[in-house]
Simulated assay, not measured.
Amino acid sequence: MRIQWILHAWSEEECVKPLKQCKEAITINDKKGKVIIIELVVGNQKEIEKSTETQLFFDMVMMVLVKGKERTETEWAKLFLDAGFSDYKITPVLGLRALIEVYP
């Protein structure tokens, strides 16, 4: 198992490659697993005004320091589909972060 905070700091193209590798790893030998991601999801339904401000601040930091950004659910969904996944589930937890389960 590999745990690393990388997706928010990378561009879409840089995110798709490790996601494809994750999909390949969890479907090997006809086994079905899932990828678990803990990340910010801009615009999730449980946010409050202060959370929105913080999420937008993180997004500005990402745009200035690296190629990445904080993503909306629609942007996460596009990444998952581009990597070959068929479904996902986002559960807001841990303050500003959400638990994202991605299925092959």
Score class of each variant (00 low, 15 high):
residue 3 I to W: 07
residue 3 I to P: 01
residue 3 I to N: 10
residue 3 I to C: 08
residue 3 I to M: 09
residue 4 Q to H: 02
residue 4 Q to S: 09
residue 5 W to T: 13
residue 5 W to D: 14
residue 5 W to S: 15
residue 6 I to H: 02
residue 7 L to G: 02
residue 7 L to A: 14
residue 8 H to R: 01
residue 9 A to P: 00
residue 9 A to F: 03
residue 10 W to Q: 12
residue 10 W to S: 13
residue 12 E to R: 12
residue 12 E to T: 14
residue 16 V to A: 08
residue 17 K to I: 15
residue 17 K to C: 02
residue 18 P to D: 05
residue 18 P to N: 07
residue 18 P to C: 07
residue 19 L to V: 11
residue 19 L to Q: 10
residue 19 L to Y: 01
residue 20 K to H: 03
residue 20 K to I: 08
residue 20 K to L: 06
residue 20 K to Q: 15
residue 21 Q to I: 10
residue 22 C to L: 13
residue 22 C to G: 12
residue 25 A to E: 10
residue 25 A to H: 02
residue 26 I to V: 13
residue 27 T to K: 03
residue 28 I to A: 13
residue 28 I to F: 14
residue 28 I to R: 15
residue 29 N to D: 15
residue 29 N to C: 09
residue 30 D to G: 06
residue 30 D to T: 03
residue 32 K to D: 15
residue 32 K to E: 15
residue 32 K to L: 14
residue 32 K to N: 14
residue 33 G to I: 10
residue 33 G to M: 05
residue 34 K to W: 02
residue 35 V to R: 00
residue 36 I to Q: 04
residue 36 I to G: 05
residue 37 I to Y: 01
residue 39 E to G: 06
residue 39 E to A: 13
residue 39 E to L: 04
residue 42 V to Y: 02
residue 43 G to M: 06
residue 44 N to K: 06
residue 45 Q to C: 09
residue 45 Q to H: 12
residue 46 K to D: 14
residue 47 E to Y: 01
residue 48 I to A: 00
residue 48 I to Y: 00
residue 49 E to R: 08
residue 49 E to Q: 11
residue 50 K to I: 11
residue 50 K to R: 11
residue 52 T to K: 04
residue 52 T to W: 00
residue 53 E to Q: 12
residue 53 E to S: 08
residue 55 Q to M: 13
residue 56 L to K: 13
residue 56 L to I: 11
residue 58 F to K: 13
residue 58 F to G: 10
residue 60 M to R: 14
residue 60 M to D: 15
residue 61 V to R: 05
residue 62 M to G: 03
residue 62 M to S: 12
residue 63 M to P: 01
residue 64 V to A: 06
residue 66 V to E: 12
residue 66 V to W: 04
residue 67 K to S: 15
residue 67 K to N: 14
residue 67 K to Y: 05
residue 68 G to Q: 08
residue 71 R to G: 01
residue 72 T to W: 00
residue 72 T to S: 03
residue 74 T to W: 01
residue 75 E to P: 07
residue 75 E to W: 07
residue 75 E to S: 08
residue 75 E to A: 07
residue 76 W to L: 07
residue 77 A to Y: 02
residue 77 A to P: 00
residue 77 A to C: 03
residue 78 K to Y: 00
residue 78 K to V: 11
residue 84 G to C: 07
residue 84 G to D: 05
residue 84 G to V: 10
residue 84 G to P: 02
residue 85 F to D: 08
residue 86 S to G: 14
residue 86 S to L: 03
residue 86 S to F: 02
residue 88 Y to N: 03
residue 88 Y to D: 01
residue 90 I to C: 01
residue 91 T to P: 06
residue 92 P to K: 06
residue 93 V to L: 09
residue 94 L to H: 09
residue 95 G to C: 07
residue 95 G to D: 12
residue 96 L to V: 12
residue 97 R to G: 04
residue 97 R to N: 13
residue 98 A to K: 05
residue 99 L to Y: 09
residue 101 E to G: 02
residue 103 Y to M: 10
residue 104 P to H: 08
residue 104 P to Q: 08
